[in-house]
Simulated scan of single mutants.
Amino acid sequence: MTFLLAGASKTEMNSYNGNGLVYVMNPHLDLMDEDILYHLDLGTKTHNLPAMFGDTKFVCVGGSPNRMKAFAQFMHKELGLEGDGKDIKDICAGTDRYCMYKVGPVLSISHGMGVPSISIMLHELIKLLHHAKCRDVTIIRIGTSGGLGIEPGSVVITDTAVDSFFKPQFEQVILDNVVTRSTELDRDLAEELLECSRQIKDFPSLIGHTMCTDDFYEGQGRLDGALCSFSREKKLEYLKRAYNAGVRNIEMESTVFAAMCRLCGLKAAVVCVTLLNRLEGDQITAPHEVLLDYQQRPQQLISLFIRKCLGLWNPNGLSEDVI
């Protein structure tokens, strides 16, 4: 098992990951007789993980269980698999923490809301991919976010995840130490996704920084929470500084996602649609049908990307949503 330090450079990561395998940065796993992936209801002795997951090439993660089930059913149709996909089975049905669906080489998993929830899922997902001996895996977080200075419905493809101080880092408290990890994402993948987005009709998209916060209300400068310790003027001054620092959307998972995927040699991207412009308000007021259309945009983009990677995209036989 290869063990890399948290400060490993991208060049070092690439050299270690030349065979395309997913690495775990924990030498203690070699000493374990069995690895129980508790929150996924899976394990190395109870399940044949290479048989179940070994052909996985794409992993898509998102906060909502219902949305990730809908994405799996959408991908079932887009990949032209047999059946209608309505009876697709939740692999993690034995737990109520996360849901997981597999359609062909695509794994769709929910991660809940916030850094702690997605962190737990990622630890077990990365170990799962490692135990299954998966190679050349691309992992993409799809979700919703608050926009910053851009129109609602815009899809932001993250180039760098930043913290609340606009720094490209994730700080993890380990024992009684604060460990800082890089949040660099794969820039080539971001550019490839942007190019794919240009093939979709009426699809506003851009590459920008994504700010990850620890809270939805005060932590994102909202004035409408149960607590608020700042003025409207202070809020706008902060959000404008974020915009000037390159931030184009705000969510609650991207820094730990970027840090963990980078350390384990996973090609990763974050693709989130914006539901509102935070410079104009705090509450999401768009009608349900509009929000539903917005939420489907990251799914449409990732479907096109996956089909192009698999050689299944036919530019001359596109749906009405695509030019």
Score class of each variant (00 low, 15 high):
167 K>Y: 04
125 L>M: 14
166 F>M: 07
153 G>Y: 04
114 G>M: 02
98 Y>L: 02
146 G>S: 03
176 D>I: 12
123 H>Q: 08
167 K>M: 09
86 K>L: 05
164 S>G: 12
97 R>G: 11
98 Y>W: 04
166 F>N: 10
99 C>W: 01
86 K>D: 05
136 D>R: 08
165 F>T: 15
72 A>Q: 06
114 G>D: 02
93 A>L: 14
95 T>Q: 03
167 K>L: 13
99 C>Y: 01
78 E>N: 05
91 I>N: 05
117 S>A: 07
173 V>C: 12
137 V>H: 03
146 G>E: 00
99 C>R: 07
78 E>L: 09
148 L>K: 12
126 I>A: 07
158 T>A: 08
120 I>P: 01
113 M>V: 12
147 G>Y: 10
151 E>K: 14
117 S>Y: 02
135 R>G: 05
95 T>F: 06
79 L>A: 06
132 A>H: 04
125 L>E: 08
130 H>V: 10
72 A>R: 02
166 F>T: 11
158 T>L: 03
76 H>E: 10
90 D>H: 01
70 A>M: 07
81 L>M: 09
127 K>N: 10
175 L>Q: 15
98 Y>H: 00
99 C>F: 05
117 S>L: 06
86 K>M: 06
93 A>F: 15
114 G>A: 03
106 V>Y: 07
101 Y>D: 10
141 R>L: 03
109 I>K: 04
168 P>D: 06
112 G>R: 00
121 M>A: 05
150 I>N: 14
170 F>P: 05
153 G>L: 08
162 V>H: 09
72 A>K: 05
174 I>S: 11
